[in-house]
């Protein structure tokens, strides 16, 4: 949880935090509020964010079985939940572990990569319409990281 804060406190184990370190702490505390807002928004709007994605993906792949499309949508619902948690805790390692050790395998075994990529693109667009300009930079890096983790072979 909050690896940056944990590291700061560990480094200051035998002393007080220096002024510059307290500033980092303050910046982090301020961003935590924003992170929580985004987190709550994603939670509240999960259905609203994904329904247009689902509609668009069905239109783009009309011949694909609904089970396959549903499964891919579920992958990305799960990925976005992991992104939300990783963003809240500012912990990319959490995202990496969950994606590499779980979701990546599911995607590779069950899904059509073209569909998954398209969902990613649609999701990114959808998020841009739900989150403000200030909120996006906190979340999007985690989503981009997900794309990299899911679609790039080690």
């Amino acid at each position: 949880m909050h690896p940056e804060i944990v590291r700061l406190l560990q480094e200051a184990e035998d002393r007080y935090l220096q002024t510059s370190e307290v500033e980092i702490f303050q910046r982090y505390a301020a961003s935590l509020n924003r992170r929580l807002e985004i987190y709550e928004k994603l939670r509240e709007k999960e259905e609203k964010i994904f329904q247009p994605v689902a509609d668009a993906i069905e239109a783009a792949f009309p011949n694909e079985k609904p089970e396959v499309v549903s499964r891919s949508l579920k992958h990305w619902i799960l990925i976005l939940r992991y992104c939300a948690t990783a963003m809240l805790a500012n912990d990319p390692e959490f995202l990496k572990l969950r994606l590499q050790e779980w979701v990546k395998g599911l995607v590779a075994a069950q899904a059509n990569e073209e569909i998954e990529l398209k969902i990613y693109e649609l999701l990114e667009t959808e998020l841009k319409s739900h989150l403000s300009e200030k909120q996006l930079p906190l979340l999007l890096p985690f989503l981009a990281k997900s794309k990299e983790l899911i679609f790039t072979d080690e």
């Binding site: 549903s70 969950r98 050790e101 779980w102 979701v103």
Partner: peptide
């Protein structure tokens, strides 16, 4: 038509139960 509400009817999306960190 795929309904996200139906997909999420169970709310829980279980993941990696045996992940070492948890």
């Amino acid at each position: 038509m795929i309904s996200i509400a139906n997909l999420l009817s169970e709310e829980r999306l279980p993941g990696n139960y045996f992940a070492h960190d948890v």
